[in-house]
């Protein structure tokens, strides 16, 4: 097969995928930037060009947008400080050939195989004010005075949803990092042990640098996941009570499909897109390190 044939084969094999990707992903995306410049109810072709008005309203005249943004950031920060250390910890423990590691790995990954809607419904029952396990548990251990309405309480609602999201996604990050750790050749650990390194030292000086690239991936994925959070919130609280759990995407959905502001919602979508892109690039740059080859 000469070079030319190879090229032809590549084009033939790639074309259908590229075409589908282009028509159903790239094209709508480009179109979104255009739609964001209109006032459009989304029920007919009646559109009115308003320039950057949608963006101006979003940034200067819409307190709910900033509220949503702060909730997403809260999601990101809490998830970051819990998921990254926890998943690193569990991944290292599971990698160290403890008995039943496969079973634990299965347990951690389990939430990930349940549909997000089922997870949301399940946790709504856990938080349920009258027959939820959480309140029953609190009462059982004598902390009954802390029993409350959880998802209906302005103070706790967001944290409750975040906790569910962490429970749901932790397993994914553990498995991701576990794969990274498992691929580190054991002789690095043997060498560091010979040099007298304890398990903490070998974690810091062998494991961490060698899974850094995977960790970077995990952080970027975390950013995308938390800024894009939708299903869980929508099923558990629909953004309530009083916007306390409203996120960028639940707000986008509400604007588009409930309030028939498709233009405005699309502008919000463009902002979320730019936000995620920016945050991911920033994270990638902040975590830049010399890659260790092995």
């Amino acid at each position: 097969m000469n070079k030319r044939d190879k090229l032809r084969a590549a084009v033939v094999f790639l074309a259908p995928a590229m075409l589908l990707y282009g028509v159903f992903f790239v094209l709508p995306m480009v179109q979104a930037f255009y739609v964001a410049l209109f006032r459009w109810r989304g029920v007919s072709m009646e559109k009115q060009f308003v320039g950057i008005d949608n963006f101006r309203t979003l940034f200067t005249g819409d307190p709910v947008f900033w509220q949503c943004l702060s909730h997403n950031l809260m999601f990101l920060i809490v998830s970051f400080i819990t998921i990254i250390p926890l998943s690193l910890f569990f991944a290292s423990v599971l990698a160290s050939r403890i008995r039943g590691a496969d079973v634990y790995r299965g347990i951690f990954l389990f939430p990930n195989v349940i549909s997000i809607v089922a997870v949301a419904a399940l946790w709504s029952f856990i938080y349920h004010p009258t027959f939820g396990i959480l309140n029953a548990l609190l009462k059982g251990i004598g902390l009954g005075k802390y029993a409350t309405g959880w998802l209906g309480e302005p103070r706790y609602a967001l944290l409750c949803v975040i906790a569910t999201s962490i429970w749901y996604s932790l397993g994914f990050y553990i498995v991701l990092l576990l794969a990274g750790i498992k691929s580190i050749p054991t002789y690095f650990y043997e060498a560091s042990a010979l040099d007298g390194a304890g398990s903490w030292q070998s974690f810091c000086h062998v494991t961490l640098p060698l899974v850094w690239e995977i960790l970077k991936l995990a952080v970027i994925y975390l950013i995308i996941h938390t800024l894009n959070i939708f299903g869980l919130v929508w099923v558990m609280t629909e953004g309530g009570p009083n916007y306390h759990t409203e996120t960028l995407l639940t707000y986008l959905y509400r604007q588009a499909f409930v309030q028939s502001n498709f233009g405005y919602a699309t502008a919000l979508g463009v902002v979320v897109f730019v936000l995620i892109l920016g945050a991911s690039l920033a994270a990638g740059r902040l975590m830049k390190r010399e890659t260790v080859e092995f």
Binding site: P28, M29, V35, L252, T266
Partner: peptide, 11 residues
Amino acid sequence: MLAAICFVVLM
């Protein structure tokens, strides 16, 4: 999500 909206339109 953004893509989804436009997808709806295309459909």
